[in-house]
């Protein structure tokens, strides 16, 4: 997945300036930067979640498997099946654990019970939640702890077998132990999925990502291997930010 000269506007104000960035397949890319720098906006351009915001518009291209997802011929609904998303706050539906994970499959017209059961189990296992919930799949998802809920949301996103998983500060509402579990999970998942994660937590970006992109005021300032960004940033803004001098 990649973007080319992507500009994004909320009404009159421009939020992204000519972003060109390629996301490596089966790698974790971290988007970092101070609040309001456009990293979440960029993330939400990647599955066109920004379409929901009135008076917003995108210019330039976002490419998935060589196809521009902003092309008028693209079906947004189908696109979102290929680009899954995990949100900042755990947001399971007020349904059972099983129905939460099966939701994406059901809306895509899958009715086969055995298939649904298998996919739900696989997804919950992938999200490292199966052992904790296998005996209460038909209880409400709202009875789970915050960390479990977030892993459920990850399982829900994985169930439709996306290529890319977008994560918008997935651990910011969780305690350290739950955060640790999510980070371990991200390590596991990158063997199968391309992951793009927005985070405010420098240590988290350093721990989980392979590539880091630093944003400031809607511009992509610097990008490179996480290791080199954190040890030898080329630009002063980047080093100032990651060492905590501003932001």
């Amino acid at each position: 997945m990649s973007t080319k000269d992507l500009n994004f506007y909320y009404g009159e104000s421009q939020a992204l300036y000519s972003i060109s960035l390629a996301f490596e397949i089966k790698q974790v890319t971290a988007l970092i930067g101070p609040s309001g720098c456009g990293k979440s906006t960029l993330l939400r351009c990647l599955n066109r979640m920004n379409d929901l915001i009135p008076y917003s518009r995108a210019e330039g291209g976002v490419f998935l498997d060589g196809e521009d997802i902003y092309d008028p011929s693209v079906d947004v609904v189908a696109l979102r099946r290929h680009v899954g998303m995990v949100f900042q706050k755990p947001n399971p539906f007020p349904k059972t654990i099983f129905e939460n994970v099966a939701y994406g499959l059901r809306v895509n017209g899958i009715k086969d019970k055995t298939f649904l059961r298998d996919r739900v189990e696989t997804s919950l296992k992938q999200a490292a939640l199966w052992d904790e919930v296998k005996d209460r799949l038909h209880n409400s998802a709202l009875g789970l702890s915050g960390g479990q809920q977030q892993r459920l949301c990850i399982a829900r996103a994985l169930a439709v077998e996306p290529e890319v998983v977008l994560m918008d500060e997935p651990a910011s509402a969780l305690d350290p132990i739950a955060t640790q579990k999510i980070e371990d999970l991200i390590h596991e998942l990158k063997t199968t999925y391309t992951i793009i994660i927005v985070t405010h937590n420098m240590q988290q970006a350093a721990r989980v990502s392979d590539v880091t992109a630093f944003f400031y005021l809607g511009k992509l300032i610097e990008t490179g291997k996480t290791e080199s960004i954190f040890t030898r940033p080329r630009l002063k803004e980047t080093s100032d930010y990651i060492t905590g001098r501003f932001g």
Binding site: A78, N108, A157
Partner: peptide
């Protein structure tokens, strides 16, 4: 109804 429900659903490829 929290808008996060809507986002989650649309994000999974629901119409």
């Amino acid at each position: 109804v929290p808008s996060t429900y809507r986002e989650a659903s649309l994000g999974l490829g629901a119409t």
